[in-house]
Amino acid sequence: MKVLVTGIAGALGRLVAARLAEGGHEVIGIDVRPWYHPPEGVRVIQGDIRKRPAEDVFRTQKPEALIHMATVTHLTHRSSDRFRINLGGTQAVFDHCHTYGVQRAIFVGRHTYYGAGADTPLYHGESEPPMAVHTFPELSDLVAADLYAGSALWRFPDIDTAVLRLCYTLGPLRQGTLAAFLRGPRVPTVLGFDPLFQFMHDHDAARAIVLALEKDLRGVFNVCGPPPVPLSVLVRETGRSTLPLPEMLLRPMLGRLGLPRLPKGALEHVKYPIVIDGTAFRKLTGFTPEFDEDATMHAFRDA
């Protein structure tokens, strides 16, 4: 199958591309970032998905499937840019899919969509509304992109669209939201709070995305790996130590004294769990994680 991957130069994008190529697919990638030596079977076009050259790729290459991973998740990125890329980009690629006859589209979203709070349930189902808009307004563009991608299911019924909500990824790539949070030797936590954290190995995440493509998935799916573990266990097993600070102290200290910079809403995600139920995805694809929670944490620690 001829697969177009947007955001291919990202850490997870590269893994997905390599796995697709290994599986005998023809891979074309678009990214504003360069990828100098892609593996055999992978072609990379450097450019912005919202610009004309990207549309030309759809027109001339006629991909059969799209994996859309070109969303900005770094919270330090200027938010007006993020909004334009995450929403404008998603709109553009789905429009092109419709115009140029792409049969399958996969949007790779995040489980942070559901938001965290004292009264949010453990194990979110796909039908739940995005509380993140309320608890963590800085994520609203990602939530909107997720819902917008989902709207392709009724706007473009001829395209098999799958919206994947992936839990945090962790492992040897040391990239992504959770890896950034765990970067330093001392991880700031909110004193008296120890939420469950759900994550999956980088390779399992890439495998799940490829499975979603190969199994003709249609709909919205939570994608998760091994069962969640408390933040304290995560910090310990990744060879870090916790720096528990009272919330009143931690808030003003974020971004200073070597602590990670987090927007205000992110603190809710350090106090309360976001745990998703991935049963539907597992049932339809037969996906089971290869790496359990220990192997995943240790892979991150030892990388």
Partner: peptide, 13 residues
């Protein structure tokens, strides 16, 4: 209860 420090982590465990 889940908004109070310590009570939150303990109740969860």
């Amino acid at each position: 209860i889940h908004k109070l420090p310590f009570f939150s982590s303990f109740s969860s465990r």
